[in-house]
């Protein structure tokens, strides 16, 4: 199994040091030029833009997903299954089809605008489609289940007695959440954030369809380099830089966790 994971990666790594032939083939000469190009401010801007969008999408998923997961985890067990099923049902439909459905909902004369105008909340249609807002909606919609499921697993294991003890000791609501619930469900929060952040960072269908291809995320850049410019070496280098960034972030996080959880320092 490991081989199937590492072989393609190895291939991509090797290609990232090659260069593009005039007709788009791969010319085998070792150079770091592709990585130097990634450092160009133009491409760094794409990375920054993607990072910001992915971060905002992750925070939104967490804010929306936590109450939902908490609610499900506190339901009677037989209802929990039903709710979890409802969370997962969207996966039965192709992601592309669901993204197209959002186009129809967000259009100028679409469902959202007719509902808002019909209820008298606004009098001019909102121009949501083909903007970064639409991209965010698409990302949050697409990856919310990845946040809810690990959160549910963590909250479900949280003993009720601990929360009740906090209330009994007259902790204010914010303290119950901030000092009891959140620290005890932290593994779920971290897992959910990772599962949402990483695919958001590499998304390319959502920015193309809901963002109207008006801007680029890293995923679009990679797709563009591979399929349009046929510069596989540069596309591979971008992929590896992206992967390096994600790995560095994860390692840094694990490192801080380790130092914080060292025996003796635990409170």
């Amino acid at each position: 199994m490991g081989a199937f994971f590492f072989l393609p990666l190895l291939l991509v790594l090797v290609i990232s040091f090659a260069s593009r032939g005039t007709y788009g083939g791969v010319e085998w000469s070792f150079s770091l030029a592709n990585y130097a190009t990634v450092a160009d401010p133009l491409y760094l801007k794409i990375f920054l833009h993607s990072l910001v969008l992915a971060l905002v999408a992750t925070v939104l998923c967490l804010v929306l997903g936590f109450p939902l997961a908490y609610y499900i985890a506190r339901l009677p067990v037989r209802w929990q299954g039903v709710w979890l099923l409802l969370v997962m049902i969207p996966f039965w439909t192709n992601f592309l089809v669901r993204t197209y459905a959002w186009i129809f909902m967000l259009r100028t004369e679409g469902l959202l605008n007719s509902l808002l105008i019909g209820s008298g909340l606004i009098d001019k249609p909102l121009e949501v489609l083909f903007s970064d807002t639409a991209v965010l909606i698409g990302l949050v919609y697409g990856y919310l289940p990845f946040m809810v499921l690990p959160l549910y697993a963590a909250i479900e294991r949280l003993p009720r007695s601990v929360v009740e003890a906090a209330w009994d000791l007259y902790a204010p609501a914010w303290a119950v959440f901030w000092r009891v619930i959140l620290p005890l469900t932290k593994p779920g929060v971290v897992a959910g954030c990772i599962l949402v952040f990483i695919p958001s960072l590499g998304a390319f269908i959502t920015p193309d369809l809901l963002g109207g291809a008006r801007s680029m995320m890293v995923g679009n850049l990679i797709q563009h380099e591979y399929l349009v410019v046929r510069d596989w070496p540069f596309g591979s280098a971008v992929s590896f830089v992206l992967m390096g960034l994600v790995l560095t972030g994860l390692m840094a996080y694990l490192r801080t966790e380790e130092t914080m959880n060292k025996p003796g320092e635990e409170r």
Binding site: L42, H49, R214, S215, M216, H224, V229, D231
Partner: peptide, 15 residues
């Protein structure tokens, strides 16, 4: 090779 120029200009336009 001029495709490089188009490619860069296109990316700049998108950003």
């Amino acid at each position: 090779e001029a495709i490089r120029l188009y490619d860069r200009a296109w990316t700049e336009l998108k950003l």
